[in-house]
Nucleic acid binder design. Structure first.
Ligand SMILES: [Mn+2]
Ligand SMILES: [Mn+2]
Ligand SMILES: [Zn+2]
Ligand SMILES: [Zn+2]
Lengths: 146, 146
DNA sequence: GTGCAGATGCAATTCGGTTGCGTCCCGCTC
DNA sequence: GAGCGGGACGCAACCGAATTGCATCTGCAC
């Protein structure tokens, strides 16, 4: 009825579909958190996710952490370690495209996926070492910070 | 006179030379911390550095943090962000060789420089973004963990 | 509708790192 | 070799992201 609710965004339905498809129990916190991620144009911190959630159903901080962990495990999201010691989360748009680089603005912290830049799959490691995952992060200034 | 002191290691003299050469005031904490780094064969956490220091002159935790910051600023050491949200520090062996990749064991946390692997200098970023530093980290299992 | 494994909420805790501030001491000057 | 001044140090308090323990609740298979 024309109410002014800004959250949850239209992505809620998509979120539900993805969670179901992953064979997970469908809960309000999961739907809400994933919807926020699907709606975002950049990587979000736990804190940013929490406040994007606030107006609707309140979700406990710890639950947000646990939901995010779960989404990452399921491959529905990935998380990026930050220079500022906080994780940032992004919905994994398309499970078909591989691991990629990320850019973080050292001034405002804004973090985005560089989907065009694949991480090198062929790094040479010392004898006996078993490489599993390659992380490629670019620090610098974003468009609005320089 | 033949006492069994294990610390500071023989690298103390080298540490003093480097600190002097950087135009810095020579203090016991600085010498001790840098000597530990010069003696290490892998990247060390703040905690590891602190305990490597312990038997000799006790140095305050906070001082260790400040000394490490300073060494990094001076280019005498570099630090590596970890998946476990802790920095690891390495003496910068040779100021002449550029930025390189790192390997971190996801089981034991052991971190080493992959000096042979240079970080790609040419990453393509979105319009208006200014890249400044590229971080290339390989996660996996070290020789003694798999 | 019932039962239960799994999910949530809440409070307390951990832990790497930082800040404020009074005291100390390195290295320069005379 | 004393005197001095600014930087370095030690100590205690603090911060914030993330984790843990546990009681309660709930999605969903039956
Ligand atoms: Mn990404
Ligand atoms: Mn290195
Ligand atoms: Zn920015
Ligand atoms: Zn290992």
């Amino acid at each position: 009825m024309g109410n002014a609710t800004l959250r949850p965004p239209a992505k809620a339905a998509a979120a539900q579909r993805l969670i179901r498809a992953a064979g997970e129990r469908l809960t309000a916190p999961r739907t809400a958190v994933l919807a926020v991620l699907l709606d975002a144009k950049r990587a979000l911190t736990h804190h940013e996710i929490e406040s994007a959630l606030a107006p609707g159903v309140p979700v406990d901080r710890v639950t947000v952490y646990r939901v995010l962990d779960r989404l990452v495990t399921l491959g529905l999201a990935h998380r990026i370690p930050g220079e500022d010691r906080t994780w940032r989360y992004v919905a994994s748009r398309d499970s078909s495209h591989g691991p990629h680089a990320h850019f973080t603005c050292s001034r405002c912290g804004k973090t985005v996926c560089l989907e065009a830049v694949a991480t090198p799959p062929d790094v040479k490691v010392p004898r006996g070492f078993l490489p599993q995952k390659v992380e490629l992060t670019v620090q610098g200034l974003c468009a609005s910070c320089h």
